[in-house]
């Protein structure tokens, strides 16, 4: 499993072809705005960034809100991390 992080909306265009079926995606910083649109894959978003932007309750299902400790756990479960920015 590869963990992809996306920190801005434009980052999705960079990695959309690179996300394999068993990969995971974490949205952080301005990347959390991607949670406003329907997405083709399940996704996590950093809770602090979602709260800071007033997006709690506004994100599409099934975005899962996570803390930094969950982010660290995902990194340890992944074989490697790709950051899209």
């Amino acid at each position: 499993m590869i963990l992809h992080t996306i920190n801005k909306v434009a980052g999705l265009a960079l990695c959309q072809h690179l996300i394999a079926a068993d990969d995971k995606v974490v949205l952080l910083e301005d990347g959390v705005y991607l949670g406003l649109q329907p997405l083709a894959f399940s996704i996590c978003a950093i809770r602090l960034d979602v709260e800071a932007r007033g997006l709690v309750g506004r994100l599409k299902e099934p975005v899962e809100l996570i803390d930094y400790s969950d982010f660290v756990s995902l990194c340890t479960e992944a074989d490697k991390i790709c950051s899209w920015f």
Binding site: I2, H17, L18, A20, D79, K80, I81, C82
Partner: peptide
């Protein structure tokens, strides 16, 4: 591209 990423240890 997915295979290329898989085959390297670090990105």
């Amino acid at each position: 591209m997915q295979a290329l990423i898989r085959h390297h240890d670090k990105v």
